[in-house]
Amino acid sequence: MSRNVVRAFQTSTAAAIQYIGADMMQITSINGPNGARWLQSTRNICDAVERADPRIVFADIQGAKAHISSKDRTDLEEVITVGLQTQGGLRVGTLHVHLNGSFKFFPSRAGREGGFGTRLAQANIPGYLAGEDDPWDKTSPAKGGAPGSA
């Protein structure tokens, strides 16, 4: 059943963010003794983001293994990367979830233009750390590629 059809069967009061991409249980198994904490941080943040902006309905877990970001060189902590999408599949930005429950949100161009970045910044979600523009939207000067190719 497609994710759009599944979402249509949920009531607005019971709607919860849908996880796509890497299996959530892999977060627990791949990240050793901190796996359960990584899973809880990721779920808590994604749920809070969906409550802050109900237009965000999909959390695309882009790899279950915590890692140092190659896109955000200012962040020296390990992160779980989560892409955020609307019902229509529009990518509005990316979350970097930290083990301690803090996170950064990098709005894409569509996320900035649609007010997603502003809405999340003003939602007073515990652990929110201001991010810059979405590094996935930028051309990599080192590689000279097209946006999103870095």
Rank of each mutant, 00 (worst) to 15 (best):
A48D: 06
R43Q: 13
V49K: 04
V57E: 12
T81K: 11
E50C: 11
F58K: 14
T42M: 01
D75G: 09
A52N: 09
Q40V: 06
A66N: 07
N34K: 11
E78W: 04
L84G: 14
T28G: 05
V49P: 02
D53C: 13
A64D: 00
V79I: 15
T28E: 02
N44Y: 04
G32H: 03
E50H: 14
I56G: 11
V82R: 14
Q40E: 11
R73G: 02
R43N: 05
R55D: 02
V82T: 13
I68M: 07
I80S: 02
I27W: 03
A66S: 10
T28R: 12
Q40S: 12
R55F: 05
S41K: 06
I80G: 01
D60L: 13
S70Y: 00
H67R: 15
T42K: 02
S70V: 05
H67Q: 14
V57G: 08
Q40M: 08
D72I: 11
L84C: 09
D53Y: 13
L84D: 01
S70F: 00
E50W: 10
D72A: 13
V82N: 05
R51V: 14
A66M: 05
V57L: 06
P33G: 09
G35Q: 06
T81L: 04
Q40F: 03
I61S: 00
D75C: 15
R73D: 00
A48C: 11
E77N: 15
I27R: 07
H67N: 10
T28V: 15
A64M: 01
I30M: 09
H67E: 09
K71H: 14
A64F: 03
A66Y: 04
W38M: 04
I61D: 00
T74W: 04
K71N: 13
D75Y: 04
K71M: 13
D53I: 10
N34H: 11
D72E: 09
I68W: 03
E78R: 12
G35F: 07
V79G: 08
I30R: 13
D53K: 13
A52V: 10
R55C: 07
A36C: 06
C46D: 00
D47Y: 10
L39N: 06
S69Q: 02
G83Y: 10
P33M: 04
D47E: 10
E50I: 05
L76Y: 11
G63W: 00
A48K: 12
I56Y: 03
A64K: 01
A52Q: 12
V82M: 07
V82Q: 05
A66E: 02
T28F: 00
I56C: 11
E50R: 15
A64V: 02
A48P: 10
T81Q: 07
E78M: 14
T74D: 12
R43I: 09
V79D: 01
D47G: 10
T81I: 09
T74G: 12
N34F: 08
I61R: 01
R55E: 01
A59H: 06
E77T: 11
D60A: 14
A66D: 04
T81N: 09
I68T: 15
D47S: 09
D72L: 02
G35M: 03
E50K: 12
A66I: 09
S70I: 05
R51C: 03
G83M: 06
D53Q: 13
R73H: 05
V57D: 10
D60Q: 13
N34P: 08
D47T: 10
L84V: 12
I61P: 01
S41M: 06
T74E: 13
